[in-house]
């Protein structure tokens, strides 16, 4: 029964997609994007930015330790989007530990934030799917511990149907290999903390710096970057290919 229901939904989505394509919508790759404002990152993405009507995944390099950087990168990217699109940012999570006073530093107005508390991953993913079908929403984020291929595909179809951007923020580290890649998402990013450069005065923490790995991107080039975020201007101040001893290990892990 369940499978029939899902197939019906999928079929309806596919029809909607065909209708859109017939109505003169651009081809899959060339749809609306929003640039991240960092040349190195945008160059790796098809169309020079992240696809709007799509789902993107952001993973922490290490569980908990890199949750701050992963959430920070997610917000930085969404902040760029929120400047272009009206509507609320729906943030769906079980743990309500996102701290709204910090959002301004990522270009996200806390007044445009809607928080939804979901009891578990299934409820969070369901909520996200509902939100992605609602064009009044600017973007929807779901914090989850994991998801399966079906869920990812449903989300992607919902994002295409509603034209809404979805972002899956994983709270748990996901091994890059050892399990098959279940992603139906447009892009998958892995974020890890890097020591900041001295912020003017020696000994003070500087601007947040991350290692940003673009693990997969449809129609683009995966890459490995060193990125710095300026929360005063809400802009990336640096995005360069990652050059460090760790890069080699990272590459090995990916190709394995």
């Amino acid at each position: 029964m369940r499978h029939e229901g899902e197939n019906e939904v999928t079929l309806a989505e596919l029809r909607a997609r065909i209708r859109r394509l017939e109505a003169g919508g651009a081809a899959e790759g060339g749809r609306a994007v929003w640039p991240l404002g960092a040349a190195a990152l945008d160059a790796a993405l098809p169309g020079g930015g992240l696809a709007r009507a799509a789902v993107h995944e952001v993973l922490p390099a290490r569980t908990e330790a890199d949750d701050g950087p992963a959430a920070g990168f997610a917000l930085a990217v969404l902040g760029r989007l929120m400047r272009q699109v009206s509507g609320p940012l729906l943030w769906i999570a079980r743990r309500q530990d996102l701290y709204p006073p910090a959002l301004g530093g990522f270009g996200v107005d806390p007044a445009r934030l809607l928080l939804a508390r979901a009891g578990d991953d299934a409820a969070a993913l369901w909520s996200m799917e509902e939100a992605l079908r609602c064009p009044a929403v600017a973007a929807a984020v779901a914090e989850v511990n994991g998801f399966d291929r079906t869920a990812a595909r449903r989300l992607q179809l919902a994002a295409e149907a509603g034209g809404v951007t979805g972002l899956l923020l994983l709270r748990r580290h996901v091994a890059p290999r050892g399990r098959q890649d279940p992603s139906a998402a447009q892009t998958r990013w892995r974020i890890g903390a890097l020591p900041s450069r001295d912020g003017g005065i020696a000994g003070l923490p500087g601007k947040p710096r991350w290692r940003v790995e673009l693990l997969r991107v449809r129609g683009g080039v995966p890459g490995d970057f060193e990125v710095e975020w300026d929360d005063a201007t809400a802009d990336f101040t640096l995005a360069a290919p990652f050059r460090d001893g760790a890069a080699a290990t990272g590459k090995r892990a990916r190709s394995g």
């Binding site: 939804a116 508390r117 509902e130 064009p135």
Partner: peptide, 26 residues
């Protein structure tokens, strides 16, 4: 200019599943 109709309905659906008061604004 943007049309935010559909948003209250979305919130209702979410609260219907997640529970009353589970969608809030900071």
């Amino acid at each position: 200019t943007v049309d935010l109709s559909g948003l209250p309905e979305l919130v209702d659906r979410l609260e219907s599943r997640l529970g009353a008061g589970m969608v809030t604004r900071p």
